Simulated assay, not measured.
Amino acid sequence: MNDLWDTAGYIASSRYRVSVCKYLDREGPELPSRIASKLGFAQPHVSRALSELRDRNVVELLVPESQQKGRLYGLTREGKQALTRLRGDAASVSVSFVEERSFPHDSLIDHLCDEHGEELRLVVARNGDDSDVFVASEDVQKRYDEQSIARLIAALRAGETTIDDKLMDVPTGENQFAVRGLEHSLLVRFSVDDDAEILVALEPDADVNVPAFIDACRRRLKD
């Protein structure tokens, strides 16, 4: 995944980051307090989003660092490019939340629920532009709507590979297995055929071995 899609995925993984970027793109440079007021967010959420986005060179502070009042923020060129790419590709993604028995591979859901229980967040079956999403809990359902999942899929599917070879032998609980897309989650992605794939989101501290995890999932897909 190239740097621009990496940035787009990072924006997509938080509704606060997405909303702040869209606001700055639409309205231009603004103060954190005004952004929070206009978006209806608590200011700490906006301030944190701006700090995170600034660390990734998505937004920039337009006044001297020493200035404590009137701290205006605006999108960088990279931020505008990432947001444009994210918007364009996400618009072509169709997302449907489904129950377990309506999921294209319900035996896979049975396996993941049995083996990973509380570690499981959601499972996505993508076929072309259409994606069916099984959400493991009401808490996760509240955090991710259809648009946020569409942005995630748009960002992820731009990559040519599913899992880097150098990461295949790394237990997913280790920090080296970086996850981009769902904030504070571990995402395992593998292909089913030429234009279909499975995305499984787990808790970040899930203790599974990637090759064994994928092999077990593939066996279930054949059931």
Score class of each variant (00 low, 15 high):
L4N: 03
R17W: 05
R17L: 06
L24I: 04
L24A: 05
E27K: 14
E27L: 02
G28M: 08
P29I: 00
S37I: 05
F41V: 01
H45K: 10
S47W: 03
L50E: 10
S51D: 14
L53D: 03
D55Q: 13
V58F: 03
L61C: 03
V63M: 06
V63T: 12
Q67G: 00
R71I: 11
R85Y: 11
L86I: 02
R87E: 15
G88H: 12
D89K: 15
V93W: 03
V98A: 08
E100G: 04
R101V: 08
F103Y: 11
F103W: 03
P104C: 11
I109G: 03
I109H: 05
D110S: 08
C113K: 15
G117Q: 12
G117N: 12
L120M: 02
V123P: 02
V124P: 01
R126W: 01
R126V: 08
N127M: 08
G128R: 11
S131F: 05
E138V: 06
V140M: 14
Y144N: 01
I149Y: 08
I153P: 01
A155P: 09
R157Q: 15
A158P: 00
G159Q: 10
E160L: 07
E160M: 01
I163S: 00
L167H: 07
M168R: 14
T172A: 15
T172I: 10
G173S: 12
Q176A: 15
Q176M: 11
A178G: 04
L182C: 06
L182V: 14
E183D: 13
E183I: 03
S185I: 00
R189A: 01
D195S: 12
E197Y: 04
I198W: 04
V200L: 05
A212E: 15
I214F: 04
A216R: 08
C217M: 02
R218T: 11
R219L: 10
L221W: 09
